[in-house]
Design a binder for these strands. Structure first.
Lengths: 158, 158
DNA sequence: ATAATAGCTGAGTATATCTGTCAAGTATTT
DNA sequence: AAATACTTGACAGATATACTCAGCTATTAT
């Protein structure tokens, strides 16, 4: 359950590759393809989206390729995935494009919203820089292993 | 991204309905269908799986229906979803059925594993009882909003 | 016994999404 | 102007989703 599409996965791997080689000039799509084992044609689709989103920049012509548009500390995994797969939306009624008819009457609405918010917070907190450093991830809940409950979810940072 | 299938969603809603009416004798599939707006035929599929998993019990014949097999404090949302949709597996290489060829060489492996573990912890910590109480959910990360990082993920409970 | 109720099961199907490929560009540099 | 590299949109096969349907089995009330 809750699988990520390959587009998102490859997108993050591609971004990693670009970040890794930054400073050595633009990274060609061919290189990304070879290093990360993803076809050039498929990468074109993915990188095109990321470029339009302003996460990477491209340089045309011989010697061209892709480079980060910002410092890797300022690029989150969440942002990359959102551009490629749309926002986190556990259920269709939480998708901003669709909307929920009976928000208040639905017992589970808040459950899915809360889960979605957690995931979002995780993904937005994780930066490309962290991937580069191999600095990796002990989770949001460092504590007990059981969720923190409270009367109501209310506003949560976001 | 990361959408849950309707089977999982309906399953949780059905479990809620059964839990809500527990103490009034078995709940018929027809009632669940009407209250939760899911077709009888589709519910049969869903409830059948949950019954075989031992989460609910059924009584045949007139006056029959479904009831919880355990205290709602002991039934987690994670367990319900796992029976209906399989384990959380953000990527195919983290699916126990498939396995990963290059675990160590893959930079993103740990990222997805960590995200998956978080989700799992959230879902397993959330019990049917919590839904009943409308006692809902402030999330795993009560703190800063940024993920807690550490050198390596190491063993985490499970 | 038997009729009515209620759950049980597996097969089947339409639709949508995913996971790509292909072809024909356009822009830039040497 | 030739070579390199990115850009775009169309399209297609495979898989998964979201169901329905038909016919069955078990249980209880009369």
């Amino acid at each position: 359950m809750l699988r990520l599409s390959t587009k998102g996965q490859y997108g993050v791997r591609a971004m990693y590759e670009i970040a890794k080689c930054s400073g050595l000039g633009p990274v060609t799509i061919k290189r990304i393809s070879e290093e990360q084992h993803v076809s050039v044609a498929y990468l074109e689709q993915i990188l095109s989206k990321l470029r339009r989103a302003g996460i990477i920049k491209s340089v045309k012509g011989p010697g061209g390729g892709y480079m980060l548009a910002r410092d890797p500390k300022l690029i989150s995994i969440g942002e990359i995935l959102r551009e490629l797969e749309g926002p986190v939306a556990i259920t269709s009624c939480l998708d901003p494009k669709e909307g929920c008819v009976r928000v208040d009457s639905c017992v589970t609405h808040l459950l899915w919203k809360s889960l979605g918010d957690n995931i979002k917070r995780f993904l937005d907190g994780m930066k490309l820089q962290d991937l580069l450093q191999g600095d990796q991830f002990v989770a949001l809940a460092s504590k007990s292993g059981s969720a923190v409950k409270k009367g109501f979810s209310g506003r949560q940072g976001r």
